[in-house]
């Protein structure tokens, strides 16, 4: 009995060394920004001489983070899905396993793949209490942004972007590829000002179902992301 447990301990020790030798864990952080400064929920941002906006709610899924080095697979995020919630700073960071510290590009999706979408109700960050599963139809919202602006002639000047849809012809998951130089850990900037530069919220301010507008808005999203060295 004693011999056996010694063997097991030895084996576990060896195994952990092997794993350690092959892979290292790293973190990847998303930094929510507005015009390159940290985003503050509820803060009034001027967007012109007379107009301003505030962002009250921001949540989005990032999935399948994958690292490449010279075109070859170099690692991935530990969790397949990651939900970034502007209200929870812990959610800005996720852990990844890298073969070694070297990588020169990173790819990920904004939103969830159709296989995950089709599976419906799931747990963890996909739990419906995350407020990212539609209630009146099936499917997850990939990117949810809400706030107010003097530009919106809606009730209480609200804008509401619930961007989702995974079935043809309204697919809204978007892929992002960022290049990265150096070997330090990665910080990814997500600048919301880019969103409002690209989308005229006096015209398009309420998108809450899979449709043409949702696809149009989703195509803007990759432009929000940029990589910085830490």
């Amino acid at each position: 009995m004693r011999v056996k447990s010694t063997y097991i301990c030895l084996f576990l020790l060896l195994f952990s060394f092997l794993v350690k030798a092959q892979k290292s864990t790293d973190t990847i952080s998303f930094q929510l920004l507005f015009n390159k400064a940290p985003l503050a929920l509820g803060k009034q941002y001027s967007i012109s001489d007379k107009d301003s906006l505030t962002i009250d709610f921001l949540k989005f899924y990032i999935s399948d983070i994958t690292f490449y080095n010279k075109g070859k697979y170099a690692g991935k995020s530990i969790e397949k899905y990651h939900l970034i919630d502007a209200q929870i700073s812990n959610s800005y960071t996720t852990h990844c396993t890298l073969k070694n510290k070297e990588f020169d590009s990173i790819t990920f999706s904004i939103g969830l793949d159709s296989k995950t979408q089709e599976k419906g109700i799931q747990g963890g960050v996909l739990d419906p209490t995350s407020q990212m599963y539609w209630t009146w139809q099936n499917g997850f919202i990939n990117f949810k942004l809400e706030g107010k602006s003097s530009l919106c002639s809606t009730r209480k000047n609200r804008f509401q972007f619930h961007i989702g849809g995974f079935q043809k012809p309204y697919q809204t998951r978007q892929e992002v590829t960022l290049s990265h130089s150096g070997s330090s850990s990665l910080m990814i900037g997500v600048d919301l000002a880019t969103f409002f530069n690209a989308i005229d919220i006096s015209q398009t301010n309420t998108v809450s179902s899979p449709n043409k507008n949702a696809v149009m808005v989703s195509k803007v999203l990759p432009r929000l992301f940029s990589s910085h060295e830490n």
Binding site: E118, G120, I121, P128, Y133, W134, T135, W136, Q137, N138
Partner: peptide, 16 residues
């Protein structure tokens, strides 16, 4: 046919 998943269906009446 708004919902294609029985597990998700109850979200609709609960939230409506």
């Amino acid at each position: 046919g708004a919902i294609d998943n029985l597990d998700a269906q109850a979200l609709a009446p609960i939230s409506h």
